[in-house]
Amino acid sequence: MNTKWCRIMGIAAALLVMMLAATFAQAVNVPSTIILDSLSRLYEEVKFDHEMHIDLTDDCADCHHHTTGTGTTNRECAQCHSDSEGTSAVACGACHLEQPFSAQSIMEKEQNSDLYHIDKPGLKAVFHLNCLKCHEEAGGPAGCQDCHERTETGHAFYDSGRYAPAGKKQGSDH
């Protein structure tokens, strides 16, 4: 009896540990803040408040497609991913390339003749296309520098700030 009781307790404890581990793992994998710094040459890094955006949306799939295992309702995607399981990597950068048009990326795309997703936007594009669309609809910040301040190099690039032209010159007029 005692031994049996011990065994039940043991199994229960093991289950509890497994559940805790699973919860903990999930908590670790869902970062509350994400630093976006791929444009750090021209712009200061962006501290993306992931937690706040999770609260604002109903469904992880709004941004993460089918990768979090919640399935997808998009008619086009559902042909293959209606009941797809969660993927091991869900970060945007895991699929969307930082340099989508580099000679290397173009060559790899060219060699993979079975590739279905031939029109997959790059990382910078998915941030802007996805963020800006929602921000404009929901009244979030939508100006370039509302999200990321320009660096000194950035100002030089745009001829803005202290690099702004002194006065209007005579341009050539067709």
Partner: peptide
């Protein structure tokens, strides 16, 4: 000439500009 995209394509934040082989761009 080195296979890299032009500067405008690389800098566009919205990927208004998609660089690739012309025959593939028509498909896209």
């Amino acid at each position: 000439r080195y296979g890299d995209p032009p500067a405008c394509v690389e800098t566009c934040p919205q990927e208004v500009l998609t660089f690739g082989h012309r025959r593939n761009l028509i498909k896209i």
